[in-house]
Each structure stands twice: as C-alpha cells, then as structure tokens.
Amino acid sequence: MTRTAAAVAVFLLLAVASLFAGVSDLTPGAVLAGDPAAINLLLTSRAPRTIAVVLAGGSVAIAGLIMQMLARNRFAEPSTSGTVDAASLGMLCATLLLPDMPVIVKMMVAAAFALAGAGLFMGVLARIPLSSPLVTPLVGLMLGNVIGAATSFIAYRYDLLQSLAAWSNGDFSTILRGRYELLWVAFALAALAWFTADRLTVAGLGRDFSVNLGLNYRRVLLFGLSIVAMVTAMVVTTVGMIPFLGLAAPNLASMALGDNMRRAIPLTALLGAGLALACDLLGRLVNYPFEIPIGTMMGVIGSVLFLYLLLGKRFRAG
C-alpha cells in the first residue's frame, strides 16, 4: 500500500513538473496570482501536453499488457508485433487515398490496418513452433520491419517520408489544445479493458483453458486485439509511437503484482503514464532549450529496460 502511495506521489510530482517545465517562463506563483498570460499558456499548451503524455502513456501501457496476455508472451507489445507498423501503413494509405477525409476517418483506417497487423502476428504465432519465448518478439519485429519497408517505399515514392517520421517517432512538442483530444478516447478504450479484465486474463491462460471455462476465446481475442489496434492507431496519429513503453510498464507492474489483469491494469496505467512523463520531461531538459522527442528518449531508456528484462532470470524458464 505504501508503495502504491509512493508511486502515486512520484506520478503527481512528475505531472506538476511537466506543467512548469518549458522554454517560456511559467511559475506556479504566476498562475496562482492570476496572471492572464500565465493561465493562457497553462491552458493552451502546458496542461494539454501533460494530459496528452499521461493519456498516451497510460493507454499504450495497457495496450502492451493486453498484447502480452493475448500473445502469452512477456515481450509482445504493439511495437514488437507489427501493430504499430501496420497502423503507420494504414495512416499512409488513408493520407494518399482519402486526403480530404477528417482525421477520425483516417484514424479508423489506421486502426483497421493495425488490427489486421495484430491478427497477422497472432496467426503467424499459431503456426510456428514457439521453441523459446524470444521467438515471439522476433517474429513481431520481423513482421513489423517487412510492413515498415513497404510503408517506407510508398512514402518515398509519394514524398511523404516526413509524415511517416512523425507517426513513427513519438513527440509531444506540438501538442496544443484541440490537437490531442482523441487521446481521451484512446484512454477510455484502454480503460474498457479493466471492465473485461477477467475475460482477458482467462484468454491469457490459453485457448484450452478458455474453452474449458466456457469462454468464447475467439471473441475475446478479437475484442482485446481491437482495443490494442484502436489505441495504437490513435496514439500513432496524434503523437507518434512511443516504443518500449508498452513493454516496460506492464513488466514492472507484473513484477510487483502479477498478471491478474484486474489488479495489474491500474498500476500498469500509472507506471506507463509516469514513465512517459519522466521521458518527456527528460527530453525537454537534457538539451534545453531544445527538445529531444519522447520516442527517442523512450527508445534509449526502454531498450536498456528491455535488455534487463531479457537477461533477467525470471524469463529464462519462459
């Protein structure tokens, strides 16, 4: 309980720090004194950014947890299962073929592609012998790279490499009021997983367990993957992908509480949001006044964490 309280306290501290870190001078004193410029800055830029980081971090972490349960593998997450790459491809296709459609429509196309990518990943997993737990992320990364190569080629031909870079590297520096609200939907979808936590956990025990307990395995699989796909598409289109977050947060939560999703989801979301805040904040501070995007920061910190988990002894047995 005290550890939970400590985690919440650190999270709140990071959130407050995120509100007041930036190039323009904004102090808590000025806001409390009612300085209109300060309040305006807070409401149009700083608060939206902080909220966006929290929502994206929390939902990506939950999506990662769902992916890990359904793929029955600790190393599966949207960016190690081809899901992110498929979402980018979808976004690219939508941009090319439906240029006049609103963002929400393009996002739905991206979500459909992401779902197909996740489904393809699960389909491949079902057909190959999983001799080691490491095969799963390797399959996902290869699948992702194949999709990514096709995406890059198309983007290169149509001069859209810049847009592609925006989707594939998470960055919160352009977040303003009115440009991140889709993330509320992403977070709501991820939170929906909490209400179906038992079903998702049972599905995580495998098909035979699920059928024995009378659960419609395929339906739960489709439901879970749909949440992952929607969340991925929304995050990719609004801020770009944040690699490794969906891997790090659920694994840390699992070490503390285990994988019963009813218990693990709140902590996973909190850790995901906290890690995202920390990386975003660090990215704003290390090269001040310039920014390093969260995608890069998380790539560095997350890959170290990933290696630590890979070499950790509790995964050796699979």
Binding site: M69, R72, N73, R74, P133, T201, G204, L205, G206, S254, G258, D259, N260, G318
Partner: peptide, 10 residues
Amino acid sequence: HIAARLTVRD
C-alpha cells in the same frame, strides 16, 4: 504452460 504470472488463489 501458463506464461502469465498468477497466484495460486487467482
């Protein structure tokens, strides 16, 4: 084989 980390009670 259960990959998920569950307690016996869970």
